[in-house]
Amino acid sequence: MKRYWWKIVAVVFLFYTIIMGFLGPVPHLPVLHETIRNLYFHVTMWFGMMILLTVGLVNSILYLRKSDLKNDILAAEATNVSVLLGTLGLITGSIWAKYTWGAWWTNDPQLNGAAITMLAYLAYLLLRSSVEEEQKRARIAAVYNVFAYVMMVVFIGIIPKFTNVDSLHPGKGGNPGFNTYDLDRNLRLVFYPAIIGWTLLATWIMTLRIRLKNIQKL
Protein backbone atom coordinates (compact mmCIF):
# COMPACT_ATOMS: atom_id res chain seq x y z
CA MET A 1 0.00 0.00 0.00
CA LYS A 2 2.81 2.35 0.86
CA ARG A 3 4.40 2.04 -2.53
CA TYR A 4 1.51 1.88 -4.92
CA TRP A 5 -1.02 4.28 -3.45
CA TRP A 6 -0.32 6.81 -6.19
CA LYS A 7 -1.28 4.31 -8.85
CA ILE A 8 -4.69 4.01 -7.23
CA VAL A 9 -4.89 7.80 -7.16
CA ALA A 10 -4.09 7.89 -10.88
CA VAL A 11 -6.82 5.38 -11.76
CA VAL A 12 -9.43 7.05 -9.54
CA PHE A 13 -8.63 10.53 -10.85
CA LEU A 14 -8.73 9.42 -14.47
CA PHE A 15 -12.06 7.63 -14.07
CA TYR A 16 -13.34 10.75 -12.33
CA THR A 17 -12.00 12.88 -15.23
CA ILE A 18 -13.63 10.72 -17.87
CA ILE A 19 -17.00 10.46 -16.14
CA MET A 20 -17.23 14.05 -14.93
CA GLY A 21 -15.57 15.31 -18.09
CA PHE A 22 -18.36 13.98 -20.25
CA LEU A 23 -21.30 14.29 -17.84
CA GLY A 24 -20.45 17.16 -15.49
CA PRO A 25 -21.82 20.70 -15.80
CA VAL A 26 -19.78 23.13 -17.91
CA PRO A 27 -20.22 26.87 -18.58
CA HIS A 28 -21.53 27.77 -22.03
CA LEU A 29 -19.11 30.13 -23.71
CA PRO A 30 -19.37 31.51 -27.24
CA VAL A 31 -17.51 29.48 -29.93
CA LEU A 32 -16.56 26.72 -27.49
CA HIS A 33 -19.95 25.50 -26.20
CA GLU A 34 -19.77 21.82 -25.27
CA THR A 35 -16.32 21.40 -26.81
CA ILE A 36 -14.94 23.08 -23.71
CA ARG A 37 -14.88 19.55 -22.31
CA ASN A 38 -11.75 19.02 -24.37
CA LEU A 39 -10.05 21.17 -21.72
CA TYR A 40 -10.02 18.08 -19.50
CA PHE A 41 -8.17 16.00 -22.07
CA HIS A 42 -6.21 18.09 -24.53
CA VAL A 43 -4.97 20.82 -22.18
CA THR A 44 -4.30 18.51 -19.25
CA MET A 45 -2.29 16.15 -21.47
CA TRP A 46 -0.10 19.03 -22.57
CA PHE A 47 0.33 20.00 -18.93
CA GLY A 48 1.40 16.46 -18.13
CA MET A 49 3.77 16.55 -21.09
CA MET A 50 5.37 19.79 -19.89
CA ILE A 51 5.78 18.39 -16.37
CA LEU A 52 7.51 15.27 -17.69
CA LEU A 53 9.68 17.23 -20.10
CA THR A 54 10.80 19.31 -17.13
CA VAL A 55 11.58 16.09 -15.25
CA GLY A 56 13.65 15.08 -18.28
CA LEU A 57 15.46 18.42 -18.31
CA VAL A 58 16.29 18.25 -14.60
CA ASN A 59 17.65 14.73 -15.02
CA SER A 60 19.71 15.74 -18.03
CA ILE A 61 21.29 18.56 -16.05
CA LEU A 62 21.88 16.17 -13.13
CA TYR A 63 23.54 13.74 -15.52
CA LEU A 64 25.86 16.45 -16.81
CA ARG A 65 26.77 17.27 -13.22
CA LYS A 66 27.19 13.77 -11.80
CA SER A 67 27.50 11.37 -14.76
CA ASP A 68 25.14 8.87 -13.16
CA LEU A 69 23.48 6.66 -15.78
CA LYS A 70 20.32 6.44 -13.66
CA ASN A 71 19.61 10.07 -14.45
CA ASP A 72 20.11 9.41 -18.12
CA ILE A 73 17.61 6.54 -18.21
CA LEU A 74 15.12 8.65 -16.29
CA ALA A 75 15.58 11.60 -18.68
CA ALA A 76 15.15 9.36 -21.71
CA GLU A 77 12.06 7.61 -20.45
CA ALA A 78 10.46 10.84 -19.20
CA THR A 79 10.92 12.25 -22.69
CA ASN A 80 9.56 9.07 -24.27
CA VAL A 81 6.39 9.22 -22.22
CA SER A 82 5.97 12.95 -22.78
CA VAL A 83 6.17 12.37 -26.53
CA LEU A 84 3.30 9.90 -26.08
CA LEU A 85 1.29 12.48 -24.12
CA GLY A 86 2.17 15.10 -26.70
CA THR A 87 0.91 12.89 -29.51
CA LEU A 88 -2.36 12.31 -27.67
CA GLY A 89 -2.59 16.06 -27.08
CA LEU A 90 -2.04 16.71 -30.78
CA ILE A 91 -4.73 14.19 -31.75
CA THR A 92 -7.33 15.53 -29.29
CA GLY A 93 -6.49 19.10 -30.32
CA SER A 94 -6.72 18.23 -33.99
CA ILE A 95 -10.12 16.56 -33.66
CA TRP A 96 -11.34 19.55 -31.66
CA ALA A 97 -10.02 21.96 -34.31
CA LYS A 98 -11.74 20.01 -37.10
CA TYR A 99 -15.14 20.56 -35.51
CA THR A 100 -14.56 24.06 -34.20
CA TRP A 101 -12.39 25.73 -36.83
CA GLY A 102 -13.21 23.39 -39.69
CA ALA A 103 -9.66 22.22 -40.33
CA TRP A 104 -7.39 19.60 -38.85
CA TRP A 105 -4.49 21.99 -38.79
CA THR A 106 -4.22 25.78 -39.04
CA ASN A 107 -1.28 28.12 -39.22
CA ASP A 108 -1.38 29.29 -35.63
CA PRO A 109 1.50 30.19 -33.27
CA GLN A 110 0.19 27.75 -30.66
CA LEU A 111 -0.04 24.89 -33.11
CA ASN A 112 3.34 25.59 -34.66
CA GLY A 113 4.90 25.66 -31.21
CA ALA A 114 3.41 22.26 -30.48
CA ALA A 115 4.66 20.85 -33.77
CA ILE A 116 8.18 22.15 -33.21
CA THR A 117 8.23 20.73 -29.69
CA MET A 118 7.28 17.31 -31.00
CA LEU A 119 9.89 17.51 -33.78
CA ALA A 120 12.61 18.52 -31.33
CA TYR A 121 11.91 15.64 -28.98
CA LEU A 122 11.54 13.12 -31.78
CA ALA A 123 14.96 14.33 -32.93
CA TYR A 124 16.20 13.77 -29.37
CA LEU A 125 14.98 10.17 -29.45
CA LEU A 126 16.53 9.66 -32.89
CA LEU A 127 19.82 11.03 -31.60
CA ARG A 128 19.74 8.55 -28.72
CA SER A 129 19.19 5.64 -31.03
CA SER A 130 22.10 6.58 -33.27
CA VAL A 131 24.83 6.35 -30.62
CA GLU A 132 25.88 2.95 -29.30
CA GLU A 133 28.18 3.72 -26.42
CA GLU A 134 26.21 4.35 -23.20
CA GLN A 135 28.16 7.15 -21.51
CA LYS A 136 28.67 8.99 -24.77
CA ARG A 137 25.02 8.69 -25.72
CA ALA A 138 23.94 9.93 -22.31
CA ARG A 139 26.17 12.99 -22.49
CA ILE A 140 25.28 13.98 -26.05
CA ALA A 141 21.57 13.46 -25.43
CA ALA A 142 21.70 15.51 -22.23
CA VAL A 143 23.35 18.40 -24.06
CA TYR A 144 20.75 18.29 -26.81
CA ASN A 145 17.92 18.03 -24.31
CA VAL A 146 18.99 21.18 -22.46
CA PHE A 147 19.33 23.08 -25.74
CA ALA A 148 15.98 21.85 -27.03
CA TYR A 149 14.14 22.67 -23.81
CA VAL A 150 15.40 26.25 -23.71
CA MET A 151 14.56 26.77 -27.38
CA MET A 152 11.09 25.31 -26.84
CA VAL A 153 10.43 27.74 -23.99
CA VAL A 154 11.66 30.58 -26.18
CA PHE A 155 9.48 29.45 -29.06
CA ILE A 156 6.30 28.94 -27.07
CA GLY A 157 6.72 31.65 -24.45
CA ILE A 158 8.67 34.53 -25.90
CA ILE A 159 8.37 34.65 -29.68
CA PRO A 160 4.53 34.92 -29.86
CA LYS A 161 4.67 37.97 -27.56
CA PHE A 162 6.90 39.90 -29.94
CA THR A 163 5.55 38.83 -33.28
CA ASN A 164 1.97 39.84 -32.26
CA VAL A 165 0.28 37.34 -34.52
CA ASP A 166 -3.33 36.84 -33.61
CA SER A 167 -4.04 33.33 -32.49
CA LEU A 168 -7.34 31.54 -32.89
CA HIS A 169 -6.52 29.27 -30.00
CA PRO A 170 -8.82 29.50 -26.97
CA GLY A 171 -7.34 31.75 -24.30
CA LYS A 172 -5.25 33.66 -26.89
CA GLY A 173 -6.06 36.74 -28.92
CA GLY A 174 -9.16 37.54 -26.86
CA ASN A 175 -10.81 34.17 -27.42
CA PRO A 176 -12.57 32.64 -24.45
CA GLY A 177 -10.82 29.70 -22.91
CA PHE A 178 -8.26 28.81 -20.33
CA ASN A 179 -7.74 31.86 -18.15
CA THR A 180 -8.73 33.01 -14.70
CA TYR A 181 -12.07 34.52 -15.69
CA ASP A 182 -13.44 31.65 -17.71
CA LEU A 183 -12.18 28.75 -15.69
CA ASP A 184 -15.04 28.62 -13.22
CA ARG A 185 -15.34 26.37 -10.19
CA ASN A 186 -16.93 23.42 -11.98
CA LEU A 187 -14.11 23.30 -14.51
CA ARG A 188 -11.43 23.52 -11.86
CA LEU A 189 -12.93 20.59 -9.97
CA VAL A 190 -12.13 18.33 -12.90
CA PHE A 191 -9.22 20.19 -14.46
CA TYR A 192 -6.69 19.85 -11.63
CA PRO A 193 -7.41 16.18 -10.85
CA ALA A 194 -7.10 15.50 -14.58
CA ILE A 195 -3.60 17.04 -14.70
CA ILE A 196 -2.55 14.96 -11.70
CA GLY A 197 -4.17 11.87 -13.17
CA TRP A 198 -2.46 12.07 -16.58
CA THR A 199 0.88 12.93 -15.01
CA LEU A 200 0.66 10.00 -12.60
CA LEU A 201 -0.39 7.63 -15.38
CA ALA A 202 2.56 8.80 -17.47
CA THR A 203 4.86 8.35 -14.47
CA TRP A 204 3.52 4.83 -14.05
CA ILE A 205 4.30 4.00 -17.68
CA MET A 206 7.71 5.59 -17.21
CA THR A 207 8.60 3.48 -14.16
CA LEU A 208 7.52 0.33 -15.99
CA ARG A 209 9.73 1.23 -18.93
CA ILE A 210 12.66 1.98 -16.65
CA ARG A 211 12.27 -1.41 -14.98
CA LEU A 212 12.12 -3.05 -18.40
CA LYS A 213 15.33 -1.23 -19.40
CA ASN A 214 17.05 -2.39 -16.23
CA ILE A 215 16.03 -6.00 -16.85
CA GLN A 216 17.22 -5.83 -20.45
CA LYS A 217 20.60 -4.67 -19.26
CA LEU A 218 21.19 -7.81 -17.19
Binding site: I116, T117, L119, A120, A123, L126, L127, Y144, F147, A148, M151, V154, F155, I158, I159
Partner: peptide
Protein backbone atom coordinates in the same frame (compact mmCIF):
# COMPACT_ATOMS: atom_id res chain seq x y z
CA UNK B 1 17.09 16.78 -38.26
CA UNK B 2 18.68 17.99 -35.04
CA UNK B 3 19.19 21.58 -36.04
CA UNK B 4 15.84 22.47 -37.62
CA UNK B 5 13.62 22.26 -34.53
CA UNK B 6 16.02 24.16 -32.30
CA UNK B 7 16.71 26.78 -34.96
CA UNK B 8 13.04 27.46 -35.48
CA UNK B 9 12.63 30.46 -33.08
Amino acid sequence: VLSFPIMMP
